[in-house]
Design a protein around this nucleic acid. Structure first.
Lengths: 339, 339
DNA sequence: GCTGGTTTCTAGATCGTTCTAGTGAGAATA
DNA sequence: TATTCTCACTAGAACGATCTAGAAACCAGC
């Protein structure tokens, strides 16, 4: 059995350096109030003993943990891209990130509780599925920032991407390429699915086109299933709920012998790592995850430090054109021509 | 500005229930020494006030947090499957998981420090890239379990899958199907890459076959790149370093007009969610992530509770046959018809 | 009533920090 | 010389839990 050696404490350093604990504390924090000579003597002793401040004790006393809680879903690769960016921004502002995943058998509430237990000073929730009431309840204890979901009430911050604008850009991109028969495979019960679906309907009507929506979901399987349902409509372009869904759609088309983009254009949403894969090269609507993550961390820090009241930030998505969208085939069979 | 209400403490509950702090502590821990009646009165008061024990304070005094630190890589979807399983097993044993990701600009050491700071009692490191010396250094402070990497020294636990056996199973599966020209796209500098490469060489020689290894890596891009390099050899079967690599290989074959599995069989490794996608149906060597995760959590808990000394656990992988491996084409000549 | 043994409960110390309210020494000012 | 002002430093009380030791209440046996 390996013996675990006790960690050096402030007291040990103080004894070694021949000063009081308080002074060591001052030196270790880099706070003013110590003479240059003693400062160095203390640092020397600390180095000697391999001293590292015990964060728990420090935080217990100062009630500052400099810890931001981030709840993500372990099954959404897109979320992990946000995690990466959040770490970077948090570090830049002198905070740490505490992660907690929503997984099978582990609801969002549990994930949140575990973050509060380790002392998170604020919560950032990605695509939260909690009700506004539940969010408000947590917001009474600690600042809450909702990421990728807006309309979360007065007390909760939100950082999201303009879904309507994203769909508008998508529809415009495709109509500019001459597409008229465009299908949207929706996200089913996923968080932004309603927004995108409604936006699609509105934008298609605005262009005088029939808005065909096929039930889908957030993953490849959903895209493939949806493919079987829109074959009859013979679209020349498909807008997927997200990239994974669009990948499924592409796979379905490929199975039916249709070429992308020669026969059908496919547009994804999220601009995730899947879209960027060299053999996929999926055109997609980018929400710019790193920027969203940074904005969320910024708001969380501002709230923790009391510099700002809760607010909603909405960022504009943008189009990334790759190789799955192209001009519509020139032979447009029975559709109405442009007005 | 929303006023943040102070979190309830033991003292608050004690006052509300009309008992001492110590008794509340006893009740909350479920320790013996409280009458049934008062126990319920205290629990009621705690529920009323929404009391949750402060992990930092608890740790400071008792050095027990019931928190296991788990380090994973945010860019490896396979890791997130492990995360899911770890949560479940930890919960079953009465522990919580604290997550910390290795990401761009966030080395493993930083991930570890942040876990120790929140009070993790043990560390589980997935595919750690630390040296054995560094691992040993941490192991002196806290039990360390290395997951998916073995040969980590005396003081460190390890839970891994038998890579040699996995490759043996893979090679046997393919030779049983009549394949003779088999290529292994290796994992480059990834953690288990060396083991699998050497195992492949040994197993192929054992079957009297030429072991052709092509440099690869852990993702789709690597698989595609590798594809360009083994065309000349015209293999009838390919073993990818992992599923993502195998996916890239398949994509490359498809681009060259070759059919899987009619022309070439492809076998993955990990049996990840990618392999299971309905349009992929990749045959793969399963390491059974959930079991590995559970074993790692078990070892960590056992170590924390002092019931066992460090040890190595090696689990047997097994074959999952799906649709990307099939009998070798009957015409096996030394001249392949590839351009 | 007294003693002894449970069971239930509590006071107070303690963990390793930070924070508050000082003390003491020396320099500057009156 | 006495007073004030810094500056460097320290003692001791927090923070919110657990733990130890012991008190109080109750019951049994003699």
């Amino acid at each position: 059995m390996t013996k675990q050696q006790r960690r050096a404490t402030l007291m040990d350093v103080a004894n070694a350096a021949g000063v009081s604990r308080a002074l060591v504390s001052i030196v270790m924090r880099g706070a003013p109030g110590a003479a240059e000579g003693t400062r160095e003597k203390v640092l020397e002793a600390a180095r000697e003993l391999g001293y590292r401040a015990d964060t728990r004790a420090r935080l217990l006393r100062s009630s500052r943990t400099k810890l931001l809680g981030l709840v993500f879903s372990s099954s959404q690769p897109f979320h992990t891209e946000i995690v990466d960016a959040a770490y970077a921004e948090a570090a830049a502002r002198g905070y740490e990130i505490a992660l907690s995943a929503v997984a099978a058998g582990r609801p969002e509430e549990r994930a949140i509780e575990s973050l509060l237990d380790v002392g998170a000073e604020a919560l950032i929730l990605i695509s939260s599925t909690l009700s506004n009431e539940e969010l408000a309840r947590h917001a009474r204890q600690v600042p809450v920032v909702s990421l990728l979901r807006d309309e979360v009430g007065e007390e909760v911050d939100s950082v999201s991407s303009d879904d309507h604008a994203g769909i508008r850009i998508a529809v415009e991109h495709l109509t500019n390429l001459g597409h008229r028969r465009i299908v949207h495979v929706d996200g089913g019960s996923a968080v932004s699915a309603d927004h995108r679906r409604e936006a699609f309907r509105a934008e298609m009507l605005r262009h005088g086109l029939e808005p065909v929506v096929v039930p889908g979901g957030p993953d490849e399987e959903a895209g493939i299933r949806a493919g079987r349902n829109f074959q009859a409509f013979a679209p020349t372009a498909v807008i997927g709920f997200n990239d994974r869904c669009a990948l499924g759609v592409m796979e379905g088309l490929r199975a039916s012998g249709l070429k992308v983009p020669a026969d059908v254009s496919v547009l994804g949403y999220d601009d995730s790592q899947f879209a960027r894969l060299s053999y996929v090269q999926l055109s997609s609507i980018s929400q710019d995850a790193p920027l969203l993550a940074a904005a969320a961390v910024d708001r969380a820090v501002d709230r923790v430090e009391g510099t700002r009241p809760p607010a909603s930030v909405v960022r504009m998505p943008h189009l990334v054109v790759r190789e799955t969208t192209a001009k519509a085939a020139t032979v447009q069979t029975d559709t109405a021509s442009v007005g």
